[in-house]
């Protein structure tokens, strides 16, 4: 006997115990008398426990968990909570950093710093693009802020490799993020946004989100270089970029 009573959707809802969305008792009754319903149900049956168990292994990957900026020692996390401290440093860095260390209204610098805090070595380590692909990517992001760049201009830091470019947005204003990975595995980002604030061309050093940072301005753009904890390195790189008028 052909069974036209139930849709596949209803049978699935029945299997899932979604009582609101399936005529539960009608299906139960039909199962007793109609083998076709049973066959259709079987054709929709899967081992949902195996699905859940299979995906559970993905939770253990633990790859690319947000980068946890090293909390200044003064914060004094105790040894027993070290494991937690590592993960909470992120939250504290973002929270306290944004609200206490900086001005009340977070600007693009805070936004980028918070974003950078989520980067880990692994975020960038796998990225290997040839010059052609890098140029194509730079051409694409360059449009966002009207600044043309070449991989050769960027890959000039000794001890850090240029990795990739992407467009981010702050308050509907595009900014570009150029990422580098240092030989020590620190992810760095050079972020550029259009701005007429007239910030000095001389890099100004600071600490943001527990990372070393430098900010400067040049012909209608603002720059932020951020990442790692090596102030001298950031200063050196910032000066290199500033002098090259990237």
């Amino acid at each position: 006997m052909a069974d036209r009573t139930f849709t596949d959707e209803e049978l699935v809802a029945f299997l899932d115990g979604e009582e609101e969305h399936a005529p539960m008792s009608a299906i139960r009754a039909a199962l007793k008398r109609d083998p076709v319903v049973q066959q259709r149900l079987d054709a929709l049956r899967i081992d949902t426990q195996a699905v859940a168990d299979g995906f559970a292994t993905l939770l253990e990957q633990n790859r690319h968990a947000p980068e946890t900026p090293v909390a200044p020692p003064a914060r004094g996390f105790g040894v027993p909570v070290m494991a937690m401290a590592a993960s909470l440093a992120l939250a504290i860095g973002l929270g306290a950093g944004t609200y206490l260390n900086h001005k009340a209204q977070p600007g693009w610098l805070d936004y980028v710093a918070a974003y950078q805090a989520l980067y880990s070595t692994e975020t960038l380590a796998h990225i290997q693009q040839d010059a052609v692909a890098q140029q194509a990517e730079l051409d694409r992001v360059a449009v966002a802020i009207g600044k043309m760049l070449t991989p050769a201009e960027l890959d000039v830091l000794s001890g850090a490799e240029y990795k990739r470019a992407q467009v981010l947005n702050f308050n509907d204003k595009p900014l570009i993020q150029l990422t580098f990975l240092t030989d020590d595995g620190d992810p760095l980002a050079l972020c550029i946004i259009r701005s007429d604030k007239g910030r000095s061309a001389r890099p100004e050093l600071s600490q943001m989100e527990g990372m070393s940072a430098a900010v400067w301005g040049q012909s209608g753009y603002e720059y932020l270089l951020i990442g790692g904890q090596d102030n001298a390195q950031i200063e050196r790189y910032a000066e290199a970029f500033s002098e090259a008028e990237i």
Partner: peptide
């Protein structure tokens, strides 16, 4: 879900004797 279940169910038909599906 119905489409996904139909696809997966077909792929693992041979397993059905040994595991309980839902």
């Amino acid at each position: 879900l119905a489409s996904a279940r139909a696809t997966i169910s077909r792929m693992f038909e041979h397993e059905k004797g040994t595991r309980h599906g839902r």
